[in-house]
Write a protein that binds this DNA or RNA. Structure first.
Lengths: 205, 205
DNA sequence: CAAAAAATGGACCGGCAAGTCCAAAGCTGG
DNA sequence: CCAGCTTTGGACTTGCCGGTCCATTTTTTG
């Protein structure tokens, strides 16, 4: 890729990433060939390597970043305003719907596997995503605590971590089995935990 | 593979699966070549295709089954006797230890991705594993309920599903980020949920 | 408008790894 | 001990696909 991208160049680059993301979702990383992406995006081989000098891995990493950004975006605005039971429920519904609709392809997981955990870039993308996601959930827990709607004894960060793990696992299981009940169970149980702490105020053992 | 396997043949087949599992754990599915497995298991190309006529995918599927069996085995005997707070804690420790030790390779997940979700065989393996795992957890919850140590109002299956999702997600996140705190949070929060229900007996909303 | 830089097209290359094949060796049962 | 199997060895083929290269067109800039 050249130092300075003209608007046309930027458009092409974006088109490649978006088209590649589609292809990868449809065919999976293992099955997707550079030629498929070339066809889909109406580009040539040289363009692919022009905009992603590192080759396929380079492109894959860019797509991973693109997909990672969408994960949180797709949960907005609910994820940013978890300050009432109603908003928690709306967020829950959006998450369930998003992943049920996505079907059985986990773009990020697949990309991650292909590019390799060891690659610093790949790990950084996922780590950042998880950190932001957990932070948003923790903010939500704290917002509820501030309003006295759940116990202030609850460790907001740990609760958020557990909830995030549940969502992740629920999605993973759904990808594998086609059954979203685990995702729903994890979300509902996690949210109910907050509610119980609102009423019970039982001290942790 | 022939209809009837002699003891020697069976031994070779088993050796291939075990050796392949090692190679796949070390190098990852994408990087592992048939020749690597051939070297590791001291076999020849023809043997690989003799015992796994379907080629690489066939072998990968066999390894997936092998790994799936080990997942539950490694949690025994604790997973089969979740009838006291102490046994739950022991189970928790075993899970954390097993996956922390496993490092950043998820053999099953990787295999699954390579072979493809659509493959009926692959999906069946994972589905069966999840069902058994969840069932074991649900049995544990019921055992606690029978002893009056947690509320009988709790939906054992749903609680088990949520806990399983948490474990899955915790492992996934650990694979990606190298941080096991989500796995711990999911396990601890899940078990604490049972304890709270023991004391509080608050009705669900 | 000319020169430089960027964007594009697409033919071509080369390596790699899955899969094939046949011959040879080793068991096993009658 | 031999006839028919299972098991084994390893050279060879094959197709695929990432990556290279250079010519050409388009855009920018001074």
């Amino acid at each position: 890729m050249s130092q300075t991208l003209t608007p046309k160049g930027r458009a092409t680059r974006a088109r490649i990433i978006e088209g590649a993301a589609e292809v990868l979702r449809e065919q999976g990383v293992a099955a997707a060939r550079l030629d498929d992406i070339r066809d889909r995006t109406a580009t040539s081989k040289s363009q692919l390597f022009h905009y992603f000098p590192g080759g396929k891995d380079d492109l894959l990493l860019a797509v991973a970043q693109y997909e990672a950004d969408r994960v949180l975006e797709d949960q907005q605005p609910h994820l940013g305003r978890l300050d009432s039971w109603e908003s928690w429920k709306q967020w829950r519904d959006v998450v369930v719907e998003r992943y049920e609709q996505q079907g059985d392809h986990c773009p990020l997981g697949a990309l991650f596997l292909q590019v390799g955990r060891s690659t610093p870039g790949a790990r950084a993308i996922v780590t950042a995503l998880m950190r932001q996601w957990q932070e948003a959930l923790a903010d939500g827990v704290r917002a509820m605590q501030d309003q006295g709607m759940t116990s202030s004894r609850l460790d907001a960060d740990r609760t958020a971590a557990a909830l995030l793990a549940g969502v992740q696992g629920g999605v993973t299981i759904m990808m594998s089995t086609g059954d979203s009940s685990h995702l729903r169970a994890a979300l509902d149980t996690g949210i109910e935990l907050l509610r119980f702490h609102a009423v019970g105020e039982v001290s942790a053992p």
